[in-house]
């Protein structure tokens, strides 16, 4: 949604001095906070409410998910490196880091797909119990956000390659970066709430 007068006129005149796109992105992310807030609230509310198994403690492989979480966090670093390169007008390096970020993101999503599949084979489906319902929907929503981010990263690379980005390439990179960092931060919360805070199997 890179639709702004910033593209038409590089020196944008705004009341606040901030580019409109940046304001819009912040508002969008604020809205997203409530989206994930409501989803995480649902998950927390239903912790330990499942009436049948499998339960989280039986199924989570914390070590595996820690590694994939680390991969996603690492992608924030490459995103920053990409922006730094863009600001130095080193667009080849910028694209390189963008591709790296997208690759790390794809690794994470791939890991999630693998995790979902193995959970499914262990007997946890979307409809098995409340844990399955809330777990798949929450992490699935996040996965979709990462996927959209990957599409945006690859589009940036493509457009930069084709010379279809405006002169100030750092700006769109910064915008996509904002989104990408947000999705990363949300994952830290989800990972903590879903995986790290131990959840006892209900008695009986």
């Amino acid at each position: 949604m890179a639709d702004t007068t910033a593209h038409a006129a590089p020196v944008e005149h705004t009341s606040t001095g901030l580019p409109s796109t940046k304001l819009a992105m912040w508002l969008f992310l604020a809205s997203e906070c409530l989206l994930f807030g409501a989803l995480i609230t649902t998950y927390v509310l239903y912790r330990g409410a499942s009436t049948t198994g499998p339960y989280p403690s039986e199924i989570f492989d914390i070590r595996y998910t820690s590694v994939s979480s680390f991969v996603l966090l690492a992608s924030s670093l490459t995103m920053v490196l990409s922006l730094t390169a863009a600001e130095k007008r080193d667009f080849a390096r910028m694209r390189l880091w963008l591709v790296a970020t997208a690759l790390l993101g794809m690794t994470f999503v791939g890991g999630q797909v693998y995790e979902f599949t193995s959970f499914y084979h262990e007997g946890l489906s979307l409809t098995t119990n409340l844990f399955g319902t809330t777990f798949y929907v929450l992490t699935g929503f996040h996965g979709v956000h990462v996927t959209v981010g990957i599409l945006m990263l690859l589009s940036l690379v493509g457009m930069s390659w084709a010379g279809r980005l405006p002169d100030d390439q750092a700006f769109p990179v910064e915008m996509v970066g904002l989104y990408w960092h947000f999705v990363d931060i949300v994952w830290i919360v989800i990972f903590t709430v879903v995986y790290l805070i131990p959840q006892a199997k209900p008695a009986g």
Binding site: L35, A38, T127, V137
Partner: peptide, 20 residues
């Protein structure tokens, strides 16, 4: 966004048999 989440949960319950 709050109602959007609630609506998605309803949609999943209705369409895919989840238990929200």
């Amino acid at each position: 966004p709050i109602i959007t989440v609630a609506l998605f949960e309803m949609l999943f319950d209705r369409r895919w048999g989840t238990h929200f």
